[in-house]
Design a protein around this nucleic acid. Sequence first.
DNA 1: GCGGATTTGTTCGTATGTATT
DNA 2: TAATACATACGAACAAATCCG
Lengths: 247, 247
Amino acid sequence: MKPKNVHGNTLDALGEAIIAGRYPPGATVPPEPTLCEEFGVSRTVVREAVKSLVAKGLVSTGPKVGTRVLPSDQWNWFDPDVVAWQSKVGLTREFLRDLQETRRVVEPAAVRMAAERATAQDVAEIEAAYEGMRRAVEEGGDYVTFDLRFHQGLLRASHNRMLVQMSKALSALLRTSFEISTSRKDGPRGSLPLHRAVLDAVAAHDPARAEKSILLLIDSARDDIEAVLGSRRRLPRLNMPATLLRV
Amino acid sequence: MKPKNVHGNTLDALGEAIIAGRYPPGATVPPEPTLCEEFGVSRTVVREAVKSLVAKGLVSTGPKVGTRVLPSDQWNWFDPDVVAWQSKVGLTREFLRDLQETRRVVEPAAVRMAAERATAQDVAEIEAAYEGMRRAVEEGGDYVTFDLRFHQGLLRASHNRMLVQMSKALSALLRTSFEISTSRKDGPRGSLPLHRAVLDAVAAHDPARAEKSILLLIDSARDDIEAVLGSRRRLPRLNMPATLLRV
DNA sequence: GCGGATTTGTTCGTATGTATT
DNA sequence: TAATACATACGAACAAATCCG
């Protein structure tokens, strides 16, 4: 959208470039003066951006050795920025698979906890999100946003730090999933009752029923995703060669 | 132990101070010049440390508004540094509970995947860790380190980015858990067969049996932890008042 | 609504240390 | 061993944004 500030832009550009594979793991990023010239910023900005990348586990630095890109399994995949960069660069099949698996592991357990511990306010927030979804279906509107809010409300209601944290990373998958689902005929309308079932079970503090309901929802989404993955249709920017990503 | 560099030390000091509650969520940390004087470092170092904290989700900055501490549910709880700071400051009951719950959700699923996808090298690494545990029991030695390696090997063998990432955060819980277990009579010797069962099931590519075995292991560890939590014995630095944490 | 004060944002110049060759 | 390239660290200055009276 609009440029935030120099630091943020530089950080985003560098992060995207690394995740896009322009600087593959094991390679070194160009030295600071080169980056300064490339982005047209001062060395301080570059240094702070690099420090942020270090904090996210993407690179490590050292005198003379330069700034090395770390292997991708050391990246902090629960960092919202990292996930956002990966989403922007292109969701690979492996990344979607990992996310889908994680969701299927985490979300049922979280919903179970939510059914045990949700406060009245938690339920009210989820209810509001559901209401938004319903209105979007009937009167038209932004369905995906309310769907996201619905699931994030569920994870927040688990009142478990780690699980809440994951909701941010899972958002990338959920958004993709929802956009795929909504593109299929009657997708939103068909999934409304499934959402209603989850919400009712949580509000009734029935963990077992809540878990069963969310599994139905997840698996129906998985089928949608796999239908697209299985087809020859390419994902947005999927497997795009790194050379095409240059600015 | 020994100081790494100025940046790392400043970052650690600031991160620990925030997590210790010296600067509680919603409050602002002192302005840059004050921090410079307090730590005896230049403004550049302070700025890079703060940027690292921003990258980890602990604070947000803005002109005039200063550096604000964010609510703790926005912190990146899967960041190894954040977990390390929390561990050093003191493991609260809530933190241990969240970690324990997360482990019980994640590890069985990861072991199941490991049983499906583990390569020969994965199995070899886990086997080596087990061998170290066995030797530590019989000849004496560092049991906990090999125990950690055993579980990290399991998560790595799942070949799922997100799950591998969690192994770093879970290490804090595992270490505490192992140290509690080993402090109980015959703890290590008794858990050896449980570990063996998991390893055998993974090597035999039997997901169902692997999942059952790891659940036995987790629940026995949970009992140990709860026995300690239930007692009046205080956890290491548990609930220590923030005022005592000043340096 | 306006202006001044405070704090971060950004740049430049310079010096030091360290690992590689 | 010496040279080199690069990150590390410091200091000073101005710009920009925001809050408060």
